Each structure stands twice: as structure tokens, then as C-alpha cells.
Computed example of a mutant assay.
Amino acid sequence: MGFHTFDPDRAQMLEDVSRFRFCSRDELVGHLAVDRDAVVADLGSGTGFYTDEVAPFVGTMYAVDVQPEMQELYRENGVPSNVELVTSDVASLPFDDDHLDAVFSTMTFHEFATPDSLAELHRVLTDGGRAVIVDWTANGTGDEGPPLDERYGADEAADMFAAAGFDVPVAQERPDTLLVVAVA
């Protein structure tokens, strides 16, 4: 797979509300299945589009992005009071063991999907903590998102989570995206 990050010069695209056609706030919050005092991280948060949508439903939200430029753009947009910006690679998160109740990633799994990253997610999630992944599917058209050869199918993503010690109750292919819910 050819891993890359999203070009900060194109970050305005990340604020387009048409993104909800791929994953709505309600779908994301429903699959996270957390309570109001939960500690949750958005992996590959970018400008905070989905972070801002989930933040009102949790106690503490971490907006994790590997690119300081994206964190700065998020800061300029305004960050909710319960959101903390964290500049980090998913493979080396600055959280204690069992610190997070859930994590989610919207359209960024293909950027960090490695055995080391998934092992790190397993380490930082509480027992029963959820990872909710919505990303471009390798079985889609390729009209939007990264090139097809940089994507995973739902079954392949589910197998990667299972290999990292997760149970995977949900692995779905959709027209352009996949949905995987993995439980630590």
C-alpha cells in the first residue's frame, strides 16, 4: 500500500457537509456506543469536521492527527472546550494503557493501517472499547478518495483488526466506503 497524508492545501474540502453521505454523525455516535463521560479519540482528525460532531456526545475528545498543519487549521476554526489536539502517529499514541473508551477514523484508515498501529489501538483502548472505521473501500469506484491500490476492503480491514486481537462484530461494504467496528 502507498501511504500518504491529506494535503493541507486542500483542507477546505474536509469541511464539505456532503461528507455526511458517507457517514452521518448519528451513525458514527451509534457505533461508538459510549456514554456522555467517555474518552474518545478521532484518528486523522484533520480540520475537526467529525471531531466537532462527536464531541458533544462524550466527556473528553482527542483530535489526533500526524500533521501539525492540520492541527493549526483546526485551531483557527475553533476547537470545542472538551477537545484536546494531539499531534501523533497512530502507531505511537501518547496515551496510557486502557485510556480510551473508543476511537474512530473517517476516511483515514488507509493512511495508518499497519500491524503496529492496530496493536497500539488495542493497547490504548479499554477492555470492550470500540474502534469504528469508515474509509474508502478497495471495492468502490475510485471516483473519490485515494487511488484504489491504497485502500482496503471491509474483510481485509476486519482481518487486520482480528490479527491484532480485536473481535469484529461489524464489517460492511457500502457503495464507496467500508464500515468496520472492532472491539478490544
Rank of each mutant, 00 (worst) to 15 (best):
P68K: 05
W136V: 14
E84T: 15
V132H: 11
A158F: 04
M160N: 10
M160V: 04
G165H: 02
R130G: 09
A162M: 04
V90Y: 01
D116V: 11
Q172V: 07
A163V: 06
L85H: 00
D101A: 03
L100N: 00
A119F: 06
L121C: 03
N82P: 05
P115N: 13
F104L: 09
H122Y: 06
E84C: 05
G129E: 08
L118D: 09
A171M: 08
T126H: 06
L85K: 03
D143G: 15
V170K: 01
I133F: 10
V124T: 02
M107S: 12
D101S: 01
N82A: 04
V79L: 03
F95G: 06
T126K: 13
A102W: 01
T108E: 08
V132E: 01
S88C: 03
P146F: 14
E111I: 00
E120C: 14
A158D: 09
V86C: 07
E156V: 15
L93T: 02
E144K: 15
L148Q: 10
V168N: 11
A154I: 13
T141K: 13
E76Y: 06
G129R: 02
D96G: 07
T106K: 08
T126M: 04
R123C: 06
I133C: 10
E173R: 01
D149F: 13
R123A: 00
G78T: 03
D97G: 07
N139I: 09
E84Y: 03
N139M: 14
V124P: 03
T87Y: 02
R174Y: 11
A91W: 07
H122P: 11
T87D: 00
Y74L: 05
E69A: 13
V134R: 08
S88K: 02
V134K: 03
P115T: 12
F112H: 08
D89L: 11
E120Y: 10
A157R: 02
Q172E: 15
V79D: 05
W136G: 14
L93C: 10
D65T: 03
E111P: 07
S88F: 01
G78W: 03
P68C: 08
H99Y: 06
D155R: 11
A154G: 12
Q172D: 14
M160K: 10
A131I: 09
V79P: 04
E84V: 12
S117W: 04
E144C: 15
R123E: 04
R123F: 02
T114N: 05
Y152H: 15
R75I: 04
L121W: 01
F95P: 00
R123M: 07
L100H: 00
E111C: 14
G145M: 13
A131T: 01
T126C: 11
D155M: 09
E72L: 07
L118F: 09
R123T: 01
D127T: 14
D167I: 01
A131V: 09
G165Q: 01
A157D: 07
E120I: 08
V66H: 12
A119I: 04
P80V: 04
A157L: 09
G145R: 13
M70W: 04
T126P: 00
P68M: 11
S105E: 03
A138S: 13
A163G: 03
